[in-house]
């Protein structure tokens, strides 16, 4: 049954609600753009602060001074910094991320290729994490007094304590080397056009991410559920005759979801960037391994490109999380302040 009264918040009519959300989206987009520009400047400066000339990526032992000069001219490191910066920002504005110093391949195209590994991997890992964390987290809160509630809580603590690469190695040892059920790593040469092989190759790495991310997520779900269970509105709803499950689903889920979504956003962004470790353990040609290699080789266009695109993604994830919270919780809509 529904509550006999309706709480009133700022944007109560559908029209007011829409315009409040639109205004918020607009403000938030502006902030996104400014953040992106600041990130680009910071990126450029940080990369140029590192010692060593990027032209070295092209040279080997035995290079002559003429070869060194030619390489510097090729990569543009003989230009003054402000000229390099102007070129950099100009190209970004046109979405031209340049070509790699080392492979001479288009950076954007290469990022696209790598994304076809990293995005499904992160998404699948995330899905596994939510599937594990939400029901188990709620269960461990609701049944905190039972042995299994406590057990779930303890196991999740363990999951947080174990480093992600170790979980990966354990899973490989068990499922790939001992049981021979799944491949120990790698991605098919022809990518997703070889769907079955590509999908099977994703199972262990996604499971690794899912388990580790799920463990920390579970704790937040548990805490949020405990909060809801102790809240006045739940007690009120029950006092008005709602069953426990009904009260929890109708009122508890929405309220509990708000803090969990913040955490989800952060976790997703961390996983996306943290996939580099997983990609290494499982030899996946993802964005992380591209970044790592590019850093080792001082391949500036690749480093800049990957960092820029991942910054963009992290900002978008944050944006989506904020928007989702406002859609769920009308109380937040009226706020003028924006948390970036």
């Amino acid at each position: 049954m529904a509550l006999p009264f309706k709480p009133r918040y700022c944007c109560d009519t559908p029209r007011a609600r829409t315009s409040a959300i639109l205004a918020y989206t607009l403000r938030r987009t502006l902030i996104l753009i400014v953040s992106l520009f600041v990130a680009a400047v910071v990126l450029f400066v940080l990369l140029r602060l590192l010692p060593g000339d990027p032209a070295n990526a092209l040279l080997g032992v035995g290079a002559t001074p003429q070869q060194i000069e030619a390489a510097r001219a090729q990569v543009g490191s003989d230009q003054p910094l402000h000229v390099q910066f102007g070129t950099f920002i100009g190209n970004l504005a046109r979405l031209d991320l340049g070509t790699s110093f080392v492979s001479r391949a288009s950076v954007l195209e290469e990022i696209g290729n790598r994304m076809s590994v990293t995005l499904p991997l992160t998404a699948l890992g995330f899905l596994i994490a939510i599937t594990l964390a939400v029901p188990l987290g709620m269960l461990s809160a609701i049944r905190a007094d039972r042995w299994y509630g406590a057990a779930i809580s303890v196991i999740s603590q363990l999951g947080i304590a174990i480093p992600v690469f170790w979980v990966g190695i354990l899973l490989v040892t068990l499922f790939a080397i001992n049981l021979r059920w799944l491949p120990s790593g790698g991605f098919p040469l022809r990518g997703w056009s070889n769907f079955g092989e590509a999908a099977i190759g994703m199972v262990l790495p996604a499971l690794t991410i899912g388990l580790v991310m799920g463990a920390s997520l579970l704790r937040y779900v548990r805490a949020a559920t405990l909060d809801v269970l102790g809240s006045d509105y739940l007690r009120t709803a029950r006092a008005l005759g709602a069953g426990f499950t009904e009260a929890l689903v109708r009122h508890g889920l929405r309220n509990g979801a708000v803090p969990v979504i913040s955490i989800l956003g952060i976790e997703l962004a961390t996983t996306f960037l943290g996939a580099v470790v997983i990609e290494r353990v499982f030899s996946l040609p993802g964005l992380g391994s591209m970044l790592l290699l590019a850093i080792q080789q001082r391949d500036y266009p690749n480093v800049q490109g990957v960092l820029f695109v991942s910054t963009l993604l992290v900002l978008i994830i944050g944006f989506a999380a904020d928007l989702a919270q406002r859609l769920i919780d009308p109380r937040l809509r009226g706020r003028t302040r924006v948390e970036a």
């Binding site: 492979s103 391949a105 790598r114 790698g186 991605f187 040469l189 022809r190 996946l284 040609p285 591209m290």
Partner: peptide, 8 residues
């Protein structure tokens, strides 16, 4: 025949 950067 085929080259996939970062992989094979």
């Amino acid at each position: 025949a085929e080259w996939r950067r970062g992989s094979a």
